[in-house]
Computed example of a mutant assay.
Amino acid sequence: MMKVQLLRNASLVLTVREKTILVDPYLAPKGTYNAFDFTGNDRRNPLVDLPLSEQQLADLITHTDAVLLTHIHSDHWDDKARELLSENIPVLCQPVNEASIREQGFKNVTPVADELIWEGIKIGRTGGRHGTGQIGERMGIVSGYVISDGAEVIYIAGDTIWCEEVQQALDKYKPAKIIVNGGGARFIEGDAIVMDVPDILQVCNHAPAASVWVVHLEAVNHGKQSREEIRKALQEHRLSDRCFVPEDGGILF
C-alpha cells in the first residue's frame, strides 16, 4: 500500500514500494521569506512552521530516496530544500524545469515527459492551469502526477484550478485517491491560481467513487480560504465522508 503524509503547504512524503519520495519540498522555518508580491498583505512566508523537529527533518532528508516536483515556484522547491538535499538525489520533474534544476547543482535530474517507471513505480505526468488569463500565463507551466504501484492509483493534481486537463486526468486514470491544492490563492487582481471551494466540489462530483484530500492550506500569504471554510462547504454538500482536509503533519492514508 502507498502511504502519504502532509508536511506543510503542498509538501508530501510519499512511501511506495519501500521508497520515500518527497513531493514539492518547502522546508524553511516560519517567516523565512518575504511575502509574495501583489497580495495585499506583508505576512512573511511560510506562515507556519513545519510539523517536524530539526532532528525529524534531518531524519526525513536522510531517508528520502527521490524528490518529485510539480513545478519550481518557491513554495514548492525552496532554498532550504535545495540546501538540505544531496546534489546526487534523484529529482523527477516536468521537462520545462530540468535545466533550471541542473543549474541549481542537482546532477541526477529526470524529466517526466509523459510516463516513466522509476524503481518499479509508474509515474504519469498530467497537465494543469495555474490560474486564468494573463496571470495564468505568467505563472507558467505546471504539472500533476498519477502514481501507481501496480495495485493502487493516486493523483496529485498540483497547483491547478479545475480545468480540462484535470478532467482529462480523472477520466483517463480513474484514481481512487486524489490530492488537490486548495485555498483559492490569488493576487490583488485576477482569479484564483489554485483550487477554491467550487473547484474542489467539481473534482468530487466528477470522481464520485474517489476519496479526495485538500492540501496547500494556511501556509502562504496569498491563500484565501481556510481549512474551516473548506470543511464547512464540504459538510454543506455532504462530502465530508470522502473529502478530507488534513492538518499539517497528518497522515492522509
Rank of each mutant, 00 (worst) to 15 (best):
N221Q: 07
V23D: 02
G250D: 13
L7V: 02
Y155D: 04
R8K: 12
R238I: 09
G223A: 10
V67P: 00
H206K: 15
V48L: 09
V245K: 01
L234G: 03
I193Q: 05
P46L: 03
I135W: 06
V109I: 10
G105R: 12
T62V: 09
H237P: 02
K107I: 15
V67D: 00
G131A: 01
E152N: 12
E103R: 15
A207T: 05
E18T: 15
P198K: 10
H216V: 11
A209D: 13
S100M: 15
M195L: 13
K3P: 09
N108C: 05
D24F: 04
Y173D: 06
K19Q: 15
I178G: 00
V13P: 13
M195D: 01
H71K: 08
P46W: 01
R102D: 13
S53F: 04
S53A: 03
I200R: 05
G40V: 06
I178M: 03
S86M: 10
Y173S: 06
G140M: 05
R82H: 09
K19Y: 13
V146S: 04
G127C: 04
G183R: 02
D59W: 09
A10N: 07
P46Y: 01
I72E: 04
R227V: 02
D191Q: 15
G127N: 06
M1T: 10
H237F: 07
G182R: 00
